[in-house]
Design a protein around this nucleic acid. Sequence first.
RNA 1: GCGGGCGUGAUGGAAUGGUAGACAUAUCGGACUUAAAAUCCGAAGGCCUUGUGCCGUGUGGGUUCGAGUCCCACCGCCCGUACCA
Length: 926
Amino acid sequence: MAARSARPPPARSRTRSCRGPASCACRTAASSAQPPFPLLQRRVHPGVFSQRTAFMSRYSAAEIEQKWQQAWDKASVFTAKRDAAKPKYYVLEMFPYPSGRIHMGHVRNYTMGDVIARYKIATGHSVLHPMGWDAFGMPAENAAMAIGANPRDWTYQNIAVMRDQMKPLGLSIDWSREFATCDPEYYGQQQALFLDMLEAGLIYRKNAMVNWDPVDMTVLANEQVIDGKGWRSDAPVERRELTQWFFKISDMADELLAALDGLDDWPAKVKLMQANWIGKSRGLQFGFDLTAPAAGHERIEVYTTRPDTLMGASFVGISADHPLSKELEADNPELAAFNAQVRKTGTSEEAIEKAEKLGFDTGLRVRHPLNPDWELPVWVANFILMDYGTGAIFACPAHDQRDLDFCRKYDLPVIDTFLALDDPQPVTDEAFVPPKTEMVQWIDHFAGLDKATGDEAIDATIAFAEQAGWGKGVTKFRLRDWGLSRQRFWGAPIPVVHCDACGVVPEKKENLPVRLPDDPSFAKPGNPLDHHPTWRDCACPACGAQAKRETDTMDTFVDSSWYFARFTAPDADTPTRAEDADYWMNVDQYIGGIEHAILHLLYSRFFARAMHLTGHLPKKAIEPFDALFTQGMVTHEIYVTRDERDRPVYHLPEDIEWTESGAKLGATGEPVEVIPSAKMSKSKKNVVDPVNIIDAFGADTARWFVLSDSPPERDVEWTAAGAEAAHKFLSRVWRMARELADQRDAGLGEIDRTLQDLMDDYQLGVNPLDDELVRATHRAVDDVTKGIESFGFNAAIAKLYGFVNTIAKSQASARTRWTAMRTLAQLMSPMTPHLSEEIWAILGGPELVVRETWPVADPAMLQDDTVTLPIQINGKRRAEISVPQDMPKSEVEQQVLAVAAVQKALDGATPKKVIVVPGRIVNVVI
RNA sequence: GCGGGCGUGAUGGAAUGGUAGACAUAUCGGACUUAAAAUCCGAAGGCCUUGUGCCGUGUGGGUUCGAGUCCCACCGCCCGUACCA
């Protein structure tokens, strides 16, 4: 779901660059005489972090991480089990597309989920944290065409590589539940869902437009249409009509809209985007009578959301694909040519809306419904979609910018219907489009309005039209039915059969899965299922006669619309198993990219409802994701040089060298232009391979870094310096633990009580130096807990930096420092689980830290006795005052007024107002 | 085009409407060292008239005792736009 490149993984470079000072050893001695430190032996250039750092710190991530991953495996700590005694928690990250290699975006996404999962384990939950592969899709077919790979082999090889790359991250995933959507066991159950939904009336067939490449004779995806041309053939695409399968998602439009209100833990922006996408509108449907019948049509039905502007109608516009337009083409070669031109725009809304607005006057005339003497022209226009409303509109140029531009271009009349109250100017070049809540002055309104808002006018107009009998108030949705047919090979076959006698017949469930053939040929363009010699041939499930299989496969959005449900029982021989779905659903926390805000999430919401209707999910699961978090991307700056024709040539970060005069190409010394950060992409080569980072620094460093610098919902910029800093910090923590343990070995003695006991029984006032650290420990527990629970990972990490500095400087007793350090190990364990286990073990912690109960802060330890209040005079900070935490407002006010700076500012006068915000601030208004 | 979001020091960023710049990076200074690295300690938004001074959160307005935060407009960038995943 996340990645998209179809290219095979690039060969990894073995050279790395150094961004450190020019004196760094890696610059002067490429082949050092010193034997490299074992950790760095593999491929890492020493400049990434100094050999000596590693030597002196002795923090060996490679050793530590492997050791603890084996310990977790042995103890099966991440195997999800139904446990009636514990509350369950289902955390899910959007599963990846197996593009070939993991990237930093994956690391960030899965690390966030892992922090939540590990925290929930520590707080006593039975956690389900699964992983799978969104494995169908076009890249595998593109690879098949480009390099002759078999899509299935290509995909499973990629999965194997990516799984191997992911495991060293130490994620708390229950790998026993792993599946790929291209597994016949998975798509077979998806075919069963299809049959149930077909029977329930949730699926039907109708005609719809596709992008057709007339040279390659194949259907193109929108992204394969570049500037209106096919990406391989370069031929102008045509819109072509095909019979396709559809989910009736529009039947649920109102319900999907209303239910957004209940999604309290979803980002407001996502709910708003979905609401706008569903696009509920109330409007008027009515007809314009043609002055004379044409091509069997007597009137044109239009739908408008602004019926109140009917007196401003300038023309009636119809889509090029409107039945009337199509029928007129036969006798009107000019119109046919115009329509053919319109159909050369791709099917994407973006392409249609951005295209220059074009029109064609059909010569037909219609009568205005309010005045039979008023005739309006009928135009065909390229911006009117047959899919929305009735495929016909009336244009009101005075109050719609697009209509105005069109009318100015074709010299059509512009008639004002209302004017602004404060500036009643007629429209010239800019349409007057006030919010529908704004009061405006109406001009000669047929329903008798004078001053009214747009909303009031719309209501009045619909009532007027209904009473007069020429129109009807209608609620429409922008949301269209979900077309699931794809004319492609690498997808789940749609399990129906076409029989000459019986028509379209569903396959029998016992014949599922309808498997893809193992031997597709991509020699010819188009769908290999169409020209496979035998695959299509089958017996009709109804009459047994010779019949043909459907060759369309399912949209890959179908695969990703129910995988979360399948994870609850991946081995079930039905799509779901009731007791597992009941226990594990819903997903408590879903994490993924904002790019899925609309389609994937809306389709999943629809699917959950459809699965409930067909008996595959409980009622409570119709909103499958209780909480949603959308994380930002991982970016990196871009390095570019120019070729002899001034075209950009991109370079990998590891090929860049830094000198005082700027960035240079390591191999040639050619100066490199540095472009600000953008999303990591292979085409721009601004990618850092997580595998290299893990090899150099360890998984904990990579995890710590992607969580630390930026708030998780925002983009994070990967920098070599940041990664080094993260590693330095983890080394420091490791060293501190080691030193503390050495003190114990020197005679401090074992600490056998649990951490919580130590924290609970501490009495303040025993030793001021201990007090300070004990308070800091409780504050760290509180800060980090709140940080994790609110997805403030970067803030939690900042607090941990502060806590480590406090421990390092503390003069408290060894025993209190010991407690602080063990608490630190726990608090860091969701982010850096391997290092935390190691520290826990060094400091004599029992069992595994992953099995420890999360520490709880004592509220009493979080209170400070006195607080420093800043004093503002007229909103500007002028002084401060230190007062007891619980001092009453009135007393604070008295003390503030006595402060010299305040006295001076007042100069004998009485303040107008004194605002005391307890524990926060005081503002004196003069 | 339309819908949604984001914009804070040199850099990543912090800040329930309440001391803008926490924490980190880079930089500079000090300790340690024959030296360097590492490590440890410290400085640091800008400006000037060095004052419990002025300015400062993309730009311009507004609400408020008080705005990075809320509202409006504009600029720039990012995501989506129904067959990329």
